[in-house]
Design a protein around this nucleic acid. Structure first.
Lengths: 294, 294
DNA sequence: TTCGACCTTATATAACTATAAAATGCAATA
DNA sequence: TATTGCATTTTATAGTTATATAAGGTCGAA
């Protein structure tokens, strides 16, 4: 009857925050600071900290506040209790994507049909549908019902998407406002190196995909232009759904990783034009070889 | 308690449809054909036709259906009865945009505050907020409330937007899938010529803006790539809000119109590269000279 | 002076309902 | 045989409410 609590998400966020800032045992965790960082009030922070205290990750002193009970690095990376799904809708969302890609969902559906199919109350269903509409693979019909677009299922959309990405990323790099971000570059180098040194087999498909996306979004972010970044984020959200279903070709990863590192090298050498051109063919190359279903 | 009827919109659509297809007095208007064209069932079509019959635009014969009672060209272009606003929310949406741009709305607001301010039930407000969020100038905060972004109000966003448009449109034209659409070109030529021959003073700001947007979207549509077109549509929706507030400089229109026609000429001469380069500077030029508030 | 503890107020959500409107099957007609 | 006209079924919306949760002020401890 009431909304989903923020507490579980905040709990995770605090752990992330502590890690990202390299905090150690005994470091202080002021409520207001965390509240500002996550753009919420002190109330949900309080709840999360009490949670963490119960897990032994944090300890509190009366009237003095909360302190880390362990070094941030030590903390369990695997998500705590009921998490990974701030919303509770993520699984249905993925099921719908799967059903759509496998052809189980017709081009046109009514809300009530979907409610029955996925056993959801209307409110939740609508939330998901709006998200999907925002991603562009479904649209509201003028009267009743929703129609799936071809964005996910057609070969042409897939190729158009790569053409779009190639252009956006290349051009973002050529913008006069482009400014390499040393911190971002450093982290990207680390990730790509880790991937090269053993990650190929060990990492999960999702992890590899995520690393790849973060690399490209980091590059575009350097353009300092929100519109370019937004466009890339948008298309990457779509890509995720499709690429998950493609058997990953791990033999291509070494080359991809080397190309990523090469791009960073070129930029740091001040050879931006070369980097942009290389990035362009890098993306188109990735799109040309993989083969999506249907 | 029930939804807004489709009938008014369909009524307009039928008029548009008849005009666009050059229909004349006595031409038949089959229900199913119109229903398919507008992606609705026959029910709202029926309602709309009865409406038009009452207005004398259409006549019916029992068991035979509906026929145009006048030539399509003759029909009144000014919107009929209660129209122009399919949703009923358009005016509030614009009021919010104005209030935001004029600084009357703070960076952070709660839904309840907005409900009181604009005297709306929650459902309607949410619809508008989601639309705005989709356009990117507001975002949901994790706890309560919504935060406006800088997308509308900052000078930098404005310039970034022009840079983005220039890149997207230029590159769309250079895509291998780009294929001029003769019909679209013809209509664009007509509109631009009309604008040149007297439209400068006569047309309303909204009409001029619309003609301009349609020109650019038509060009990008020729790329046959949904992602490019989508990106342009997205940013144009935003642009509309800002440019409406800028006093239009009508002395610049002749040059703009000539440049538009010049672009069409270049493409039809097969000089696509030149056209793309020219388009690029055309857009950046437009962005550089106008001065938004704030 | 900073920050947590406590407390009150404000907020948004999820489920429910009544009802207008859209969808659609089918018989009648041209 | 296609298309309307009508009747029936299905659908989505605007509004309402109860309730968990977030927001944020004040006071006192450190």
């Amino acid at each position: 009857m009431a909304r989903n609590s923020l507490t579980p998400q905040i709990t995770e966020n605090i752990i992330e925050y502590a890690k990202a800032n390299g905090m150690g045992e005994g470091d202080r965790l002021p409520l207001q600071m965390l509240a500002d960082a996550f753009r919420v009030s002190r109330a949900p922070i309080m709840g999360a900290l009490k949670n963490l205290e119960a897990q032994g990750i944090v300890r509190s002193e009366p009237n003095r506040g909360f302190f880390l009970a362990v070094d941030a690095q030590v903390m369990d990376a695997s998500k705590p209790i009921g998490s990974g799904d701030a919303d509770g809708n993520e699984d249905v969302y993925f099921r719908m994507a799967d059903d759509r890609l496998s052809g189980a969902l017709p081009d046109k559906v009514s809300e009530n049909e979907l409610m029955r199919m996925y056993d959801l109350p209307r409110t939740r269903l609508l939330k998901i549908l709006h998200r999907i509409a925002d991603e562009g693979w479904i649209e509201r019909l003028p009267g009743n019902g929703w129609a799936f677009t071809q964005a996910l299922t057609s070969r042409k959309s897939y190729e158009d998407g790569y053409a779009f990405r190639a252009v956006i990323e290349q051009q973002a790099m050529l913008l006069p406002t482009f400014e390499p971000n040393p911190e971002g570059f450093k982290r990207a180098r680390e990730t790509q190196s880790n991937l090269r040194d053993g990650g190929y087999e060990a990492w999960s498909r999702a992890e590899i995909f995520k690393a790849n996306n973060e690399f490209h979004e980091m590059l575009v972010a350097c353009s300092q232009n929100e519109f370019f970044l937004d466009a890339i984020r948008r298309i990457n959200r779509l890509r995720r759904l499709i690429e998950y279903r493609i058997t990953i070709d791990r033999t291509r990863l070494p080359r991809q990783t080397n190309e990523h590192l090469h791009i960073l090298d070129l930029i740091e050498d001040g050879r931006r034009n070369e980097a942009a051109a290389f990035l362009y063919t890098h993306i188109l190359g990735a799109g040309r070889i993989k083969t999506p279903q249907a």
